[in-house]
Design a protein around this nucleic acid. Structure first.
Length: 487
DNA sequence: GGTTACGGT
């Protein structure tokens, strides 16, 4: 954007500085009109400091650290700021100088972008074209994205940092001068000796975490990791070589699993609804109980610092064999609905004129699934043991797949008795006489378990939703049925 | 209310 290389060279330092400043200010403007804290932790309101403090650019926010306090997302080129941050990484060098990599889990697009592992294409092999050296660098521990600020710390501050500050510590960095060195470079912080006050040290190690700024930081941090780990569960690390005995054990376990799988395959074919076909035949079946993970065995994460917490959801797909014990809505006539208008989408004037949305219908219903009872246990004595139930949503596309090609597109079922009859016929194959029993399938005899795929996902609940307080980080775990077809 | 690089992220 600067023009031909020859012209770039002609730009004086002053001109370059001017360009940098303009760009930084442009960013500032953009940020003001977009999200104040952008996508660091998801949507806008996720990132707002807790306790109704409001967006950070509101001048009204007071900090216990004083008026110069800023979040990393607020810092700008050539401005001075007091930062309350956690140390992610520290590179010390001999001469009382050191590089601190810090974060408060707010996003600033002018700082260095740390690509998450899934974005790294492995091409940066660091002069090691053949990959001889196994791990050239220690993998970046995160956080990823535009969340980590580099601060160049010099004496006398460097003294203290070198000796007293460790990775993971919370620190207050006073009077950090922000700067972008050159066009294309990243926003960094500088802490140099104060010429008027040469012995003044502007680094304060914060020993307890009771400051509201630290509490808010930790909240953002947990939110970031919960979301990150839900969407990108850490891959089992191949580089850690298992020992010989460990390998043996793994092999044995694999054999056992395979044998169990073969047995399970035989058993599941023996008793399943053969009129329902399900894709991903090779995937292991998981019980409703295990998918629900009521004790959160698969939904607990432990951070590098040892604190653990419950993940609201994990982006995963399962395959299960279950039977339908209930459904929603209660009347089959309501299984097709006019599409819910997407509030986020600008209504297209063309759409509005061309056709009336109310003419269009979509499948939309939910099924309640339960693990099949073992054949022996189907006695009154065992019948009353409460089994976990899982509601799965059936969205339009998945319903079309479920009903197969011989099913017409949905319409208003109240005025299309033919389609309603066809729907009833299909569902009878799926759930037997459940509808006759009026839902709530207690002791539904003719209801054979069928196989289907289930996707776990999460949605963020509205601020006003009373349920929000009861789910981790405001996210609710939901399930969607897919991959099954009624033959 | 301010300059001091390199390389690395």
């Amino acid at each position: 954007s600067l023009g031909a290389p020859a012209d770039i060279d002609k730009l004086s330092l002053a001109e370059q500085a001017y360009v940098i400043q303009l760009k930084a200010e442009l960013r500032q403007l953009e940020a003001k009109f977009a999200n104040p804290l952008a996508e660091a932790v998801g949507k806008k309101r996720d990132a707002a400091p807790v306790g109704n403090a409001g967006p950070p650019e509101k001048k009204a926010r007071r900090s216990t650290f004083g008026k110069k306090f800023q979040l990393v997302c607020e810092t700008r080129h050539l401005k001075f700021a007091d930062l309350c941050v956690q140390v992610v990484k520290k590179y010390s060098s001999q001469f009382g100088t050191c590089d601190l990599y810090v974060t408060d889990y707010t996003e600033n697009r002018d700082i260095w972008y740390y690509a998450p592992p899934e974005e790294q294409d492995g091409k940066e092999r660091d002069g090691d074209d053949y990959g001889y050296s196994k791990q050239p660098k220690r993998a970046w521990p995160g956080p990823y994205g535009w969340l980590v600020l580099k601060v160049n710390v010099k004496d006398p501050h460097g003294q203290l940092v070198n000796t007293k500050v460790d990775e993971g510590d919370f620190v207050l960095l006073r009077n950090v001068k922000m700067k972008i060195m050159a066009e294309g470079a990243k926003l960094e912080g500088d802490m140099w000796r104060d010429n008027d006050n040469p012995s003044k040290i502007n680094v304060v190690k914060l020993l307890n975490q009771d400051k509201p700024e630290i509490q808010e930081l930790i909240t953002r941090k947990e939110k970031y990791w919960a979301k990150r780990l839900a969407q990108h569960p850490p891959q089992p690390n191949e580089s850690t070589k298992p020992s010989k005995s460990e390998k043996k054990r793994q092999k044995k376990q694999k054999q056992q699993e395979e044998r169990a799988k073969t047995a399970a395959d035989a058993a599941r074919v023996a008793e399943r609804n053969k009129h329902v076909r399900c894709s991903n035949e090779e995937a292991l079946l998981m019980s409703v109980k295990d998918i629900l993970d009521l004790d959160n065995a698969r939904h607990t994460n432990t951070l590098p610092n040892g604190t653990s917490y419950i993940l609201p959801f994990v982006n995963t797909q399962y395959r299960t064999k279950a039977h339908v014990v209930d459904y929603e809505p209660k009347s089959l006539g309501d299984f097709a609905v006019p599409p819910i208008p997407d509030c986020n989408e600008e209504p297209s004037p063309i759409d509005a004129m061309e056709w009336d949305v109310s003419q269009k219908y979509e499948w939309y219903f939910s099924l309640c699934l339960e693990d099949p009872s073992p054949a022996k246990a189907r006695t009154p004595a065992h019948a009353d043991t409460v089994k976990p139930r899982m509601w799965v949503h059936v969205r339009h596309e998945d319903a079309q797949f479920l009903f197969g090609n011989d099913m017409d597109d949905p319409q208003d079922l109240r005025t299309s008795p033919h389609l309603l009859a066809k729907l009833r016929e299909k569902l009878c194959i799926l759930w037997g006489n459940l509808e006759e029993k009026g839902g709530e399938g207690e002791g539904v005899a003719s209801n054979r378990p069928f196989e289907c795929c289930v996707q776990e996902y999460g949605i963020e609940l509205e601020e006003e939703d009373p349920e929000r307080a009861r789910v981790p980080f405001g996210y609710k775990k939901l399930f969607r049925l897919f991959g099954a077809t009624i033959l």
